[in-house]
Design a protein around this nucleic acid. Sequence first.
DNA 1: TATGAATGAGTCTTCATTCAT
DNA 2: AATGAATGAAGACTCATTCAT
Lengths: 207, 207, 207, 207
Amino acid sequence: MNDAKEKRGLDTRRKILDAGTQLMKEQGFESLTVRKICERAGVSVGSFYHFFNSKDELFSEFQMHTDQQDQSLLEKKGLLEYIVALYLQHIDNCCDMGVEFTSNYYNPRNKAFNIHTRRPGSYPASLYGPLLAKAQSQGEVKTLLPAYAIVEDLRAIVVGNVFIWCSSDGMWDVRSNTERMLRTYLQTIFTEKYFQRFPKNQSVGTD
Amino acid sequence: MNDAKEKRGLDTRRKILDAGTQLMKEQGFESLTVRKICERAGVSVGSFYHFFNSKDELFSEFQMHTDQQDQSLLEKKGLLEYIVALYLQHIDNCCDMGVEFTSNYYNPRNKAFNIHTRRPGSYPASLYGPLLAKAQSQGEVKTLLPAYAIVEDLRAIVVGNVFIWCSSDGMWDVRSNTERMLRTYLQTIFTEKYFQRFPKNQSVGTD
Amino acid sequence: MNDAKEKRGLDTRRKILDAGTQLMKEQGFESLTVRKICERAGVSVGSFYHFFNSKDELFSEFQMHTDQQDQSLLEKKGLLEYIVALYLQHIDNCCDMGVEFTSNYYNPRNKAFNIHTRRPGSYPASLYGPLLAKAQSQGEVKTLLPAYAIVEDLRAIVVGNVFIWCSSDGMWDVRSNTERMLRTYLQTIFTEKYFQRFPKNQSVGTD
Amino acid sequence: MNDAKEKRGLDTRRKILDAGTQLMKEQGFESLTVRKICERAGVSVGSFYHFFNSKDELFSEFQMHTDQQDQSLLEKKGLLEYIVALYLQHIDNCCDMGVEFTSNYYNPRNKAFNIHTRRPGSYPASLYGPLLAKAQSQGEVKTLLPAYAIVEDLRAIVVGNVFIWCSSDGMWDVRSNTERMLRTYLQTIFTEKYFQRFPKNQSVGTD
DNA sequence: TATGAATGAGTCTTCATTCAT
DNA sequence: AATGAATGAAGACTCATTCAT
């Protein structure tokens, strides 16, 4: 009985979240209204405020998930490809959600971007940061830069590319360009030792 | 006597523009109100609409100028340093305007970012694109990528860095990081021929 | 408990409608303001927009009802008197609502006047049109003009009179004049056969 | 020198008046703005207020002129035809100005309609009122109604018809209908004596 | 858990009018 | 006679949020 009620609540919560995402995809953030969201979700305004303390709280839950990559990729193709794959997955996510949504998500005001605020796992970085440090200690990645700085560099590359993609209204091949830039960058920081294990002319398909 | 009136009008217009910029620096775009702007400018709401057709029109006039760099730099230190200096100037601009302003400026929705829309001279890229092409034809820059693609790459790096700086609420050294990334990237695309004329261990001070 | 809420809503809606009618009577349409209406209704502006999508939508609900005439009149005094009574009822309505209100209602822009748009029953015409056609087929009304044209003629007479009444700021006896004109007109279209059943020197009191 | 200045002033005045009429024809009264009028007239706002004390004053000058009919018509075809011709001329005026303009002109609020306010010659009535009284004294028009009442009746017929024409967005043959109603009415008030001079089956072309 | 009526401060925008030049 | 910059009150409408049921 109690469980049933709880489940119903969770359902409503999800309905609201979904409606919000949908509307953001369709109309953008500017015109996102609590009322509209509720109408789309088939739920009353009151319910909204039962589950979320404010409109902003809802927004902060919008996510562009990056799930753990297949661990086997790491073993088979190496860290470089693993990192590339992680970010390409994120790019694919963006393409999937569309320019409208991404334009709103890719906003410095979106606190999901602040590395200090975001919860673990919500962004690729945390998934490979430790691996990078380990690779450095094994002499497979140069130690010119600390691991966290490399992470920031890669992130800047990805963010910059997505941003430009948005600005150009989607008329631009983000995927190829980002992949190329990531590879170019990564090849300068991985060592010969690494490339002996995983030769350079490999590639990875993510479709 | 016509001149006097015209001058007065231009003054008012400028007062409004300045007040808008100020408020944006202080409070951000979200809370930018026509009334607030007018109060700050010491001007009536009616005057606002005498000079601007809408609030949006005002926004579209906000500019982050990038003036031509000192031409002598190009000759003395070479194209690589010239490009770095151009972008660092932009970064300095951003720091100058503050996180609030830049966060709003750095928004995919801001059409000032769309390379297809923006007017010539409003962004560094257009200032060195042709120089890059010329350098390629002279064998000083690798031809692996066409000039325009290099421009996009550099832009992605800068945009990404500024974006992250905004997201982190300014708690991050954009300048150094961007400079480092730009140099790393540029060193992979300039040829030995270029570096014979302009050895690598030069640096440029822009303060 | 759902019912209670619904009833409350309907109440508010009515309060707004009433306040609007009142203010229109007192001050005319020109100075009809959403805020004023809400103040008078003792209701917030938000509530107004909860029930009406716009100010115009409210206006379109203002009605000058013409209820069905007592059916017995038709049988006792005949169609001619019935028609006269219907229109006099409308005139009385106008006098009741006052010059201000009527001036605004009597505006070609008020689509309530467009015979093609208006809903059945909202204007006297539809109440006797069919009766007129029937009377023609029974030889009690001349067939020189089709029924619908007669309806338009009568309507023109009434509209014209009310219009003049409005223009003269109410300083004019609409009622008598309209009645006289209607009778004059109707006596030229009804046949002898009709007047044998219902002799001419009858009259009807509607006070 | 002085004359030249005065003429220039009159020109400006006329330009404003014309621009106002034009705009009213095109866009209706609702959206009539002093600024728009001035722009159309190619004149400054200041000039407007030099010639008119207020926007309303301009409006009150808008006219739908009815010029004196050809006097010969009166002699050749008689008073009945003369009156019909006068009103048909007004109808033609309305058609000419279009539904937009007329809808705004035909507004009880337009004081041009108030018989007490309007200046002599601005409406057909004054052109034939005295003639009607004279005809009564000569036994050519029935004396059941005083002349002024007949005038009001005719006016009501015309106003009613134009009003309906406006409400129907011009989809209605005002001219024929008004003519028919006027003739029907007039034939009931002119005497046999008149019709001996001017037999009934005459007609008048006004194109 | 769910509803939806109610709030009211706040938004952008319009526009007749004034006035110094 | 002519200009047009300046005014500011007032308008319609929005929307996150509250709360009694």
